[in-house]
Design a protein around this nucleic acid. Structure first.
Lengths: 347, 347
DNA sequence: CAACTTAACTTAATCGATTTAGTTAATTAA
DNA sequence: TTAATTAACTAAATCGATTAAGTTAAGTTG
């Protein structure tokens, strides 16, 4: 086993002091041209690379971003990570990803772990449980210690940090408006309870769209489920009853899964999409793209979101004592991807 | 801004030496009961947590696993990561994930970066470009430096490391056998050219299944595409012609995407699944689960694979000088998830 | 009472790198 | 010739933690 080179081992080999080696490698004029070249040649030959850990300790800077997300088995988060990764890499930052599994304790644990020197800052989307508990001491703690935090997608109020958000309200409004324009008048929505911020905002967009066209909203056409992340048996049952008991000609859902399952119920009921009922869902993932019929979707541009979040964080990290204590909220615009589940507009 | 506590700052505050603090916190009998309790109380009150970076440097152990994968926007890799994450967390390890985007240079760069002290070992699935180039110097280098490596799914030969693989041949065989048992006799396969290892192995399984039942294989029923990772326009065209020109009663595909597109072509041709034609695909992802009809799939158990890979790596890391220099290959068994795209067997 | 233990600490080395503050010997200026 | 300057290094502090190796003062033993 070949041991890794260190300044010390090089110094010993070349019979100079450690600081001479360090300075030579950093092209310090304090070291003679001759010695410098000799040391650099040696270092290159044996492929010396400084130890990151030692550098982190010395510089009190890890050049690492901690990312904490509820789930990774989720196309949206996956695309966000990709964006964060890309932006980080371009700026010479590492990325450590931790999953909270929507569990409050795990979120706290992960943050504490990473906060003890492993990362310079955080990008996170808070877990559902955290939102319910409204306990943000772990966030405030790391911020208090001077580590900047950028929240994305699932954000909470009252934390001194930057935010990157999908324009959820407008996205939902775009989708619902599209259906209204195509002639739908009895549009239902499958969304989440209001404590999940994205659910609440998308419901708002749904209402806004109706408002714009002066269409009254029937409360029965709004289904609020507990969980926005997955589709359990109880959710399936509620969606089934919801579809069966409502005479809808349009359906908006806050995620793909709900749309896909609803499509199943609709097909079983002998109705066709989009002739009898149109469908639009939030999130442009693989499901909506490949379903038959494919589903018109509000694309979230996750990668762009990830890049934005990373870029904001890195900016804060690079100019540390620029403590203006000002925090902003950036919005990522959505776009409507028209597919087979909605009727074409005749413009 | 509240500065983080260090042993030094505690020592100063309590008017003792740094080592007294360290020892007190680690319950050393060298320190009197009284002092110990006082220091521990103080540390607890102000929530002292040792700095990971300093510990890593001192212990020459980061308790971090580096994961390098070609893509994250891929359900399979996503599940593998989840498994790695879970296993790592249970054993007190961190996970750093880097994406190679199937790019050789990025794979090398990422490895070098992480190898300089950031991680204790690696779990990786090599990029397509690396396989083509057959340049594995970066792998050999980190191994040479004593960092264990575990390769999964996309592995290459001749590297001294452990491997975790899907039993591809057997998986494909299971799927095809199921269709044969359910009465199919004209089964087609959409696979990849032989140079992609997983494609070749799955084709083998397809042939094996036929062999077992003494069924002759018609060469025309085998479609080999260039790319196994995505579905481009040329692939779509070839799949379309393939389906239309073959009178099939069963279809096996090496991934979900091919199956989903084939299902589209089949539906357009006015045939129904599974009555006219059965479909089984490799990979159990969201697509096969939610399609209508849902698609019977050979599940790869990505999470189990991730756990296995992490567990092997951690084992090596925990018993370092157990240098038996023995490397093993573990196989993750596949399982068939029966869904709506195949006929039920009457047993 | 001198020699020896022991309890309870503190000093200092270490991990690997950077950097400030010395230290030489040679060169230049006065 | 002597002081001042400079080139080219080296020593030592530092980041934050651990730990082997001292160091005291008190208590114990013969």
């Amino acid at each position: 086993m070949k041991r890794k080179l260190t300044l010390k081992s090089i110094a010993k080999e070349m019979d100079v002091s450690i600081s001479t080696v360090s300075k030579a490698l950093r092209d310090s004029p304090e070291i003679s041209e001759e010695t410098r070249e000799k040391i650099k040649a040696y270092a290159k030959l044996y492929n010396y690379k400084p130890n990151n850990i030692a550098l982190s300790l010395k510089n009190r800077k890890t050049n690492t971003i901690g990312v904490i997300i509820p789930q990774i088995v989720h196309h949206f988060f996956t695309t966000v990570i990709r964006g964060i990764e890309a932006e980080a890499r371009e700026n010479n930052y590492n990325v450590i990803i931790c999953l909270s599994n929507n569990d409050f304790d795990k979120e706290v644990l992960n943050m504490e772990l990473l906060a003890n020197g492993s990362t310079d800052g955080f990008i996170l989307s808070v877990s559902k449980e955290t939102m319910q508990k409204e306990d943000y001491h772990h966030l405030n703690e790391v911020i208090e210690q001077g580590m900047p935090v950028v929240m994305f997608d699932r954000v909470v109020e009252g934390i001194p940090c930057d935010r990157v958000l999908i324009n959820d309200t407008q996205g939902a409004k775009k989708g619902v408006t599209h259906m209204i324009r195509s002639g739908c008048r009895k549009i239902g929505i499958i969304t989440s309870e209001d404590y999940v911020s994205v659910g609440r905002l998308r419901t708002e967009g749904y209402l806004d769209a109706h408002d714009d066209f002066g269409i009254e909203v029937d409360e029965n056409r709004i289904l609020k489920l507990d969980n926005i992340d997955d589709l359990d048996e109880s959710a399936k049952k509620r969606i089934k009853t919801f579809i069966e008991n409502n005479d809808l000609d349009g359906l908006f859902t806050v995620n793909e899964l709900f749309a896909v399952y609803a499509a199943r119920v609709i097909a079983k009921a002998g109705k066709t999409v989009p002739d009898d009922i149109s469908i639009v869902c939030f999130t442009d993932g693989e499901l909506s793209e490949h379903m038959m019929p494919s589903i018109t979707a509000v694309s979230q541009h996750g990668e762009e979101m990830g890049r934005k979040a990373a870029s904001i964080l890195i900016n804060k990290l690079e100019r540390p004592e620029d403590e203006t204590e000002e925090y902003g909220t950036s919005y990522i615009e959505t776009s409507l991807i028209e597919r087979e589940s909605t009727r074409k507009l005749n413009r």
